[in-house]
Amino acid sequence: MKNIIRNAAVSLLIGGLILVISAPAGAWPETIVYDFITGGGWFIQRPGSFSAGYRSNFGWHGGAKNGAWWGNGNYLDHGPISLHAHSIDVTGYLRIGDDTTTDPKHPTGVRDICGHAYVTYAGGSGNFWYRVRMKDAGEPGRDDKFGIALYAISPGGGIGGNVYTAWGQLNGGGNIQLHRGNNSNTGPSTYICPPAVFDDTFFFS
């Protein structure tokens, strides 16, 4: 009996430590899920964004399909940097936090899509890692939110430093839609995503 209690205590301790390591204070849990999120529209970049106060347009979609990560997207920053990003591939798709819907047919929640993008901007172009965050807060879309962060590709293909971040709310126009999964929603059990650098207070308020 003593052994059982001791083993249980050790398991709880290890479990607790793992939980602390994998979910740092302030971070929202990231979970692999197999469904879809889609959206298009525009927003004014919030304070803290690269081109705060300027308009951005986007169209993006992601998920898992037939055993692979799936998606594509476009993003255009109308600020002086005149940055345009187009997804090349998808290396991860994650649910951030918990879904919030009370209607099982119309889930609402936050998804992050990751991968590589080809980026053009005033003075240059090249490939970068990206992490896109899309929040479906319900219809018609004025409370939905979109964010994008770009990261350098380090020598060897790893994830380098964050070089660009922008986010905003679609109170101007457009919509983000989270879709239930279907039979094609099988996906990898692993993913590669750059670290999230979005303003959690903004996305989860």
Partner: peptide, 11 residues
């Protein structure tokens, strides 16, 4: 610019 279209089936 930024032309986008999706079609999704959920069963």
């Amino acid at each position: 610019a930024v032309l986008h279209a999706t079609a999704i089936g959920s069963g």
